[in-house]
């Protein structure tokens, strides 16, 4: 599969080392058609490809990707500027089960960069395409300076209750200080009628799942997005093989009740 060529239409530095790119088709490809939770393979010329989740709205004709500069490929993507080109294959993978949301209470739990694949869910709420009976976002990050999309948080309050918490901050920070499990544990929930979308570092997800199960949320009502080394994105290269699944095509979004036995096996 050869990537389509996209052009960088916008670039925002979220915080040092992490940027958000808006990309539009240059030759081949057609942007905008994806499900929240899916990902693209982004190719930086000569440096490599990396799986990056969709972070924009599914209807505005642009792919939005938030990228943290870490490995060779993400460093190269982070160096790109408006007007420059990159290769795109996708979209791939399973999305968040939006059909589960209508009429139920939606709890979105995001940690760090895990906010990126959940933003399309919030856009879907704002656009009125998905209508839960109520919705809450718990968003944890390391420091206020390392929070994504802070300029939008206020607007999101139209669609859902937003609770932000950071592990470390000065007291000027208006959100909570402390780990995400605390406000999550203090939340009042109609556990039987709640569906949870969870994304963040694996350790953070493990602790959040403990809290949620403790509050009576069923394992089958918790959906999470898994991260593994994805190279080909089409189930051929074997890198993201995980128990009976390929994360790239069977995931990245899984129902916790389906994968809990695998989730608990270390170094799988």
């Amino acid at each position: 599969m050869v990537p389509d060529i996209y052009r960088i239409a916008s670039r925002t530095e979220e915080f040092p080392g992490t940027c958000t790119l808006g990309i539009t088709p240059h030759s081949g490809g057609r942007a905008g058609n994806f499900s929240a939770g899916q990902f693209n393979m982004l190719y930086a010329f000569g440096a490599g490809e990396v799986a990056i989740s969709m972070s924009g709205s599914a209807q505005d004709g642009t792919y939005i990707h938030t990228i943290r500069s870490q490995g060779l490929a993400t460093q190269a993507l982070h160096r790109l500027r408006e007007g420059e080109f990159l290769g795109v294959r996708g979209p791939f993978g399973s999305g968040w089960p939006m059909e589960q949301v209508a009429g139920r209470h939606l709890l979105i739990v995001a940690g760090g960069l895990g906010m990126a694949p959940l933003r399309p869910v919030i856009y879907s709420l704002l656009e009125g395409k998905t209508q839960p009976s109520s919705a809450q976002l718990f968003y944890g990050a390391r420091r206020p300076q390392e929070m994504l999309y802070t300029g939008e948080l206020q607007r999101w309050q139209q669609a859902l209750k937003v609770v932000t918490t950071v592990d470390h901050a000065e007291t000027e920070w208006p959100g909570q200080i402390g780990v995400i499990t605390k406000p999550l544990g203090a939340a009042t929930l109609d556990a039987e009628n709640t569906v949870v979308f969870l994304c963040g570092p694996e350790v953070m997800m493990r602790f959040c799942i403990q809290v949620l199960l403790g509050k009576g949320v069923s394992a089958d009502a918790i959906y999470l997005s898994m991260e593994r080394n994805m190279k080909c994105a089409i189930g051929h290269c074997g890198h993201c093989q995980w128990g009976p699944n390929f994360i790239c095509k069977d995931g990245p979004v899984f129902r916790y009740g389906d994968i809990r036995a695998w989730f608990d096996i270390r170094a799988l």
């Binding site: 592990d167 402390g178 499990t181 963040g200 350790v203 953070m204």
Partner: peptide, 17 residues
Amino acid sequence: AERLQATRLQLLDVYST
């Protein structure tokens, strides 16, 4: 116990690269 667990989680610095 909850605060201790939260402190441990904070020490893990889970969002750090």
